[in-house]
Design a protein around this nucleic acid. Structure first.
Length: 305
RNA sequence: GGUCGAGUAGCUCAGUCGGCAGAGCACACGCCUGAAAAGCGUGGGGUCACCGGAUCGACGCCGGUCUCGACCA
């Protein structure tokens, strides 16, 4: 019985470097990348996707799953990750998850009963948001599923619409689908988080964004813009802002500054998501992620084997 | 040197007739079940450039000083 390792942390925390360093020492390690944007093909530089060299050395799963025209979702990710994990087990290898997207990780570590989709119901609800406002939908939800309604802000149109979509579409209250993401039962995964002082991480983010620009991110976005890009893919950090630049809405410098700010805010949001999970062991880093994390992961690796 | 304009939150700026100091962004904190690199909520921040004056009361009015900008010389 083996316990998969999970290495998680905010963007630019050095997860990939640490994972590669560990995988270099253990030939039976295969990586499962848990990242909502690296699933898109042709979005490489901006998503900091592992290099082809790294991918040739160590198997990486759950990268390049779909075209950027596709609207990808958690449910699809859960299936893909499960498939990848099964394949790894069949090869008698061991999975190591590298995770930046908290919800996607939960779909693997804490299998969720994710309700389906009812596009026609959703379309009607979204139209009603425009006419009646999200609060009106929230009042309706409160009568149909008081538990779910109590857990969300009336102004949060996206969540209210989704809860109503599921409740009306499935005939079951939204809240009846599993306990939610705020419970943390024991799971057969050993999770390790990389934690940086915020100012240092902010500097790493700024440096990395500048390196992405130098590496040709603008050209990548430009060529991406030649084709259809899904709603989900087009909101990726670095892409959204450069689409605006290419549309003439701002200067390149303004777009770059915006990318840095939004990436920093994203990193904080990742921290806030992960730090609620009491099952994560934190590794504090000030300079070198590999030097700080490798010893911890090595011992965890031995114990779990 | 002269004229005019500007100086208010970390940044960009509102502030009506003199009556408890505002917004957006940033930042901090929280939430999150088929968009999650998305979405939503909460709130901490001020010597209103400085000195003086009139007034019950000044960010605002009067006098002066400083800084920045434009124009004139």
């Amino acid at each position: 019985m083996t316990t998969p390792l999970v290495i998680l942390g905010p963007t630019a925390s050095g997860k990939s470097d640490v994972a590669m360093a560990l995988a270099d020492r253990h030939s039976d390690i295969e990586l499962v990348v848990v990242d909502a944007m690296q699933v898109y093909r042709r979005m490489d530089i901006g998503t900091a996707k592992p290099t082809t060299a790294d991918r040739a050395t160590v198997p990486h799963h759950c990268l390049d799953l779909v075209d950027a025209a596709h609207d990808f979702t958690v449910a699809e990710f859960a299936v893909a990750a499960e498939q990848a994990m099964r394949g790894i087990a069949d090869r008698h290898c061991r999975a190591m998850l590298v995770a930046g997207t908290g919800l996607y990780l939960r779909s693997v570590t804490d299998p969720m009963e994710v309700p389906g989709v009812w596009p026609q119901v959703r379309a009607e609800l979204e139209a009603r948001v425009d006419t009646d406002g999200a609060e009106a939908l929230h009042r309706q939800l409160a009568t149909l599923d008081p538990v779910a309604a109590a857990k969300m802000e009336p102004s949060n149109a996206r969540r209210v619409v989704r809860a109503l979509e599921v409740t009306l579409g499935s005939g079951r209250p939204f809240s009846s689908f599993g306990p939610g993401v705020d419970v943390y039962p024991p799971i057969p995964f050993a999770q390790f988080g990389l934690r940086w002082p915020r100012p240092l991480l902010a500097q790493r983010i700024a440096d990395r964004v500048h390196r992405m620009i130098e590496a040709g991110l603008v050209a990548e976005v430009e060529s991406l813009a030649q084709h259809t890009i899904s709603r989900t893919a087009r909101q990726a950090l670095g892409y959204k802002e450069l689409f605006e630049y290419l549309d003439g809405a701002c200067t390149l410098d303004e777009a770059i500054a915006r990318i840095i700010t939004r990436t920093r805010q994203f990193a904080v949001r990742q921290e806030r998501w992960f730090r609620r999970d009491p099952r994560i062991r934190w590794i504090d880093i000030n300079t070198d992620p590999v030097a700080a994390a490798l010893p911890v992961l090595e011992s965890a690796w031995l114990i779990s084997n």
